[in-house]
Nucleic acid binder design. Structure first.
Lengths: 348, 348
DNA sequence: TTGTATGCGTTATCAT
DNA sequence: ATGATAACGCATACAA
């Protein structure tokens, strides 16, 4: 039975001495068909091992039932969890998910968008790359009548929906928590302020300081890359200051980890002398020598909701795509790295 | 300029008063075309913002330039790293990667394969689910003339290529290492022996014991699920034995982690009293309170090589798909959890 | 209820 | 070097 997968509705129609249209109707549960022929078609279709060609169907209908997801790197826990959420929400609706990586490069981002459009995806989900400044490639997606949905890292583009967490609030919560632990000189490891998310975390940090009567000090703010080395380097610099900080709110778990490692080397006791709080709730944070406080961004949920927003747009066949902005609440996970009550209990 | 992405070669041909065939030839760099018209077509194509429709091209050519990747869960570091490897190797060749999850269910695995075939993917990469026993859905892929490539978790199916690590060797290396640390009663946390990988890790463990004059003891072998709770439970059971083991080779980092947590609770000193070694080199293993020894499976590389195998098969347009079996070497990462020389240094 | 014919956008074959 | 046409597999408007 080496059919090579080339069984078409024509093969079935010949075998049954009916027209291809009838077969097509039967297969699609079209009401205008006798139940006998429908049954007949179904059974022989199965018999002949017929497989519908989604390509042809897509070409005909203008809907490919494919969506693209573009992220910097797919093997980052945060992003792969979002993708999982999207897949699980969209799969049952017959969609396939095509994944693309930008490696944080705007030009590959543009390329990926182009090839996805060529593939006739019905929509694109994405987190913009760090180096993205231009928005022409986004408006192009809209022009071509495809849906575009940002998650986490977004840019304000008219007509584009987005699902993000409240990064300002996350920054505020983290900082306020550090203050509640008695910290007075709180530093901040920021990411690229070109990205809204880092800007918002930063602003939340500043706002929390001010609301608690602490004066923000620019020397306490370090721009870092989201990796261990960069965190260690920032910690070193930080420790050269005359008036050393007594806490840091890091916008990345990796930089926070680098800081922990560096400060420990220098003999700093955490959380007794120094409190630290990271961002993203990476799996490793809870298994560390010193379990680290962090912000959970609920990526699975973020993906699911992004998918739901997409489905809504698809269903409501509006000419104008409605713009929907969803903001999720972050969750602060307090762990030992910033929990002095815990530490004191142990000391006693 | 609301073109809605509907610019076709016909639109270009009309504008230029040439035939669509000419436009197609020009766009495809067909030699049989004058360079003037080629240039002309190119510039107007760009002008009109023409985008090739890959769907139509795929339908015509029978090649979709899409591949499917099926894994249990895409947000497990191991799998997402493999997917990254595949994407990075295949992307430059014009392929898109469609991802699917099985949630370890054979029936969804079968479903995913079917829908991928409907989508006319050119090939499927996959790691089988735990519950997979039947191979009919795999041979079906071959019958339809599509390439099938297993990575990590495979089954022996004629005509199917695979890329795996040498799990036997990994089990052997880990166990031999524990023996070299002076451990005599080495336990094993195994996974589902239905999966070849766990079977091989187990066999490597047994072989290492025997080659070093140690007698395998069935009471020292625990079947676990790959999660923290299961590891803790196994550790509890293990510690109820009269003659307690002095080491464990775990086939999963998560069960190993569960064991570490449980044993610490019971006051066991690691690695002094008990050595432990995990599997997969999950990111958290190196950041743990007690950095954990583990086996690196080089997933990125595994994905790249799987992709290369696919490309080879595609290029060599053999009628018969050649079966290629690649076995990669695992790397043992020795860390504190099983490193007594390190521990002794500290003790002194 | 069923058949006929057409088109989705491309490319390849055959002419010219 | 270029044009006309058919075909990939399917779904639909229109006829019957």
């Amino acid at each position: 039975m080496k059919d090579n997968g080339k069984v078409t509705i024509y093969d079935i129609s010949k075998r049954l001495n009916v027209s291809a249209a009838t077969v097509s109707r039967a297969l699609n549960n079209n009401p205008k068909i006798s139940s006998k022929t429908r049954e007949l078609v179904f059974t022989t279709a199965k018999e002949m091992n017929y497989k519908q060609n989604r390509l042809a169907q897509a070409l005909k209908s203008g809907k490919s039932k494919n969506v693209g997801v573009i992220v910097p790197y797919i093997n980052r826990n945060f992003f792969s969890s979002i993708i999982r959420g999207i897949e699980e929400e969209l799969g049952p609706h017959g969609y396939h998910v095509i994944i693309c990586q930008t490696h944080e490069q705007m030009d590959t981002e543009m390329e990926q968008i182009n090839t996805l459009l060529n593939t006739q995806v019905d929509g694109i989900f994405m987190s913009i790359s760090k180096s993205t400044t231009n928005i022409d490639h986004f408006t192009k997606v809209l022009q071509e009548g495809k849906f575009l949905i940002f998650f986490d890292r977004k840019l304000d583009v008219p007509g584009v929906s987005s699902v993000v967490i409240d990064d300002f609030k996350a920054g505020y919560m983290s900082t306020a928590h550090l203050i509640s632990q008695g910290c007075k000189r709180i530093a901040h490891f920021s990411g690229d302020l070109n990205l809204e998310i880092y800007k918002n975390r930063h602003d939340g940090y500043i706002s929390a300081l001010e609301n608690h009567g602490l004066k923000p000090d620019p020397r306490y703010i370090f721009t870092t890359l989201s990796n261990v080395e960069s965190g260690a380097a920032a910690a070193r610099k930080m420790w050269e200051l005359k008036e050393k900080p007594d806490a840091v709110f890091s916008a990345s778990d990796y930089t926070a980890l680098g800081a922990v490692q560096e400060l420990k080397k220098q003999g700093v006791r955490i959380p007794e002398d120094f409190c630290i709080s990271g961002f993203s709730n990476e799996p490793f944070t809870q298994y560390m020598e010193l379990p680290m406080s962090s912000i959970d961004q609920t990526p699975l949920r973020m993906g699911q909701i992004a998918a739901q927003v997409f489905l809504e747009q698809v269903d409501s066949d509006q000419e104008l795509s409605i713009e929907k902005k969803v903001v999720l609440s972050p969750e602060l996970m307090v762990r030992k790295s910033s929990n002095r009550s815990l530490a004191e209990l142990k000391v006693q």
